[in-house]
């Protein structure tokens, strides 16, 4: 970690972007399930400063992913407001990109064509094709341009998904348990890479996870959610400078505190 972080400082970002300021105000949301409303979010309010890395932590199925979909503009909140740089979010926009737990690459497209998707969708591909190669380089997949998704391992596929997001130079990256399905070793590697990408590009990052250690290792703030319908239990600032070390006693202390908040500290 130390070496890679110092390398980042030595190479300034090619195209620095300004992260989005995100405001979630009093958001409540409910699904219609067989005619009955099923509340999933209960008066959630928080803000993320431009370029901030915020983790949303909570029990699985508590509604965190729904919150990301609201921020992405894929769904509309039943009540409350979601704003990006003070403008209400009404529809999806390439400045806010969602990365799923499954890489959901298009199996009929090569790695290169998958990464080019956003540029193609917006008609930018003719002039900016070079960005595809840059994004692939960023996630360390140069040389795999013409591979098909079925030929990739889980970690590689998720790297492609990250490249597909990053090629659009998002100002807000919404990460919905992006490392959730990877094996624990690949996961540790990818956490480091994710951090590196964030430090290079300075987008605002919103990471949904149910892994306390991951949240604390990556984020500047960890927002802890309750069971469904999710409400905010605590907003924990992770006051540890980067590069962080997994064995840092302060991280362990925060971990204990968060597990306590979730009622899971019996075995501490």
């Amino acid at each position: 970690m130390v070496t890679s972080a110092s390398r980042i400082l030595a190479t300034p970002p090619a195209a620095p972007v300004e992260g989005i300021r995100l405001d979630v105000e009093d958001v409540s949301h409910a699904f219609q399930l067989e005619g009955q409303p099923l509340p999933v979010l209960n008066q959630v309010s928080f803000s993320a400063a431009p370029g901030e890395f915020v983790a949303l932590l909570g029990p699985s199925g508590c509604g965190k992913s729904t919150l990301l979909r609201l921020v992405a503009g894929l769904e509309h909140a039943t009540a409350g407001a979601v704003r990006a740089d003070d403008a209400p979010i009404r529809a999806p926009d390439p400045s806010r990109i969602l990365v799923f737990q499954d890489p959901t690459l298009y199996p009929w497209r090569t790695v290169e064509a998958n990464v080019a998707l956003g540029l193609e969708a917006r008609g930018l591909i003719k002039n900016q094709r070079h960005r595809v190669a840059e994004a692939l380089d960023l996630v360390g997949l140069t040389g795999f341009e013409s591979a098909y998704p079925r030929q990739l391992s889980g970690g590689m596929a998720q790297r492609v998904a990250l490249a597909r997001a990053l090629v659009n130079e998002p100002r807000l990256l919404l990460l919905d348990e992006p490392l959730g399905k990877l094996d624990s070793l690949t996961r540790i590697t990818m956490q480091g890479e994710l951090l590196k990408l964030w430090q290079q590009a300075r987008f605002t990052a919103l990471l949904v996870t149910h892994d306390v250690e991951e949240a604390l290792f990556l984020a500047e703030r960890v927002i802890v959610f309750s069971d469904r319908p999710a409400r905010i239990v605590a907003d924990v600032a992770v006051d540890v400078a980067y590069p962080r070390h997994r064995g840092d006693p302060r991280l362990a202390e925060l971990r204990h505190r968060i597990l306590h908040l979730l009622g899971l500290d019996e075995t501490w």
Binding site: R69, A72, G73, L74, P92, D93, P94, R96, I97, L98, F100, D102, T104, Y106, L117, G118, E120, A121, R122, R164, N168
Partner: peptide, 22 residues
């Protein structure tokens, strides 16, 4: 897969793109 559409929509795809390319 409905996620394919969500992906394309967040990447700025038009409806035409969703039909023809997804």
């Amino acid at each position: 897969n409905k996620d394919y559409y969500d992906i394309a929509r967040t990447l700025g795809a038009s409806e035409r793109f969703l039909v023809l390319k997804v």
